[in-house]
């Protein structure tokens, strides 16, 4: 575990606490895209199926369980929020899910010559989760651009997700150099995912960091 990976993970963890704080303390899910949160839940469930068959470390196990549980809770809260104005949550997610699934069927890390079919299905689902995570923020980004009164905490949530992605890129550079670690599917999808946040960070800079006190 290098420092870049750890900072990335902590930023990812912080994003959950920021979103949970927003939902619990403001008692409102306004500005939170249910579609993005449902996509993240799908991502974590598909990727962490290996919880059932492999043990890496307690750190990994606990983080995976937390990510699944927290995103499931967030989806539940946002979906059942009576004051949720989801009129602007209009992204057509089938345009994200179906291409990600098709791509995962063709570009994945399966080794059909070894391992059972279930492990290879898990590999396809792992690739699917990587592709889906790369684009899962798009419904949330669309909402941010449409809503005027975006609360700062939602913006900080997005910023911590963007920082998480950026540090994972640094982590991959470090691991490639020092460990020869190379998962091109994750790296290419990670670059795409980080680039999507570049658009957000311009918005963040203009609307949060440059916002004049009123």
């Amino acid at each position: 575990m290098n420092i870049f990976r750890f900072v990335g993970d902590m930023s990812h963890l912080a994003s959950f606490f920021l979103l949970l704080a927003k939902l619990i303390y403001t008692k409102s899910s306004t500005g939170v895209s249910l579609k993005t949160q449902a996509l993240y839940l799908t991502v974590f469930v598909c990727r962490y199926l290996d919880l059932l068959v492999a043990f890496v470390s307690w750190y990994n196990e606990l983080m995976k369980i937390f990510f699944i549980a927290a995103s499931a809770y967030i989806v539940y809260v946002v979906a059942t929020s009576t004051r949720n104005s989801n009129a602007s949550d209009t992204y057509r997610v089938e345009f994200l899910v179906i291409p990600a699934l098709v791509l995962a069927c063709f570009v994945n890390e399966t080794h059909w010559s070894k391992g059972g079919w279930s492990l290879n299905v898990m590999e396809i689902l792992w690739a699917f989760s990587i592709y889906l995570e790369a684009v899962a923020v798009l419904p949330q980004l669309k909402m941010l651009h449409q809503l005027e009164d975006t609360t700062n905490i939602t913006m900080h949530y997005m910023a911590s997700l963007g920082i998480y992605r950026a540090f994972y890129l640094l982590n991959w550079v470090y691991r490639l150099y020092y460990e020869g670690y190379w998962h091109p599917i994750a790296v290419v999808a990670g670059i795409v995912q980080t680039l999507l946040y570049a658009d957000f960070f311009i918005l963040y800079y203009q609307s949060v960091l440059l916002r004049l006190p009123s």
Binding site: R5, H12, D50, A54, F55, E109, W126, H183
Partner: peptide
């Protein structure tokens, strides 16, 4: 099983 299908990241 090869550790997490060779994947140790989140």
């Amino acid at each position: 099983v090869r550790a997490a299908l060779g994947k140790d990241e989140l």
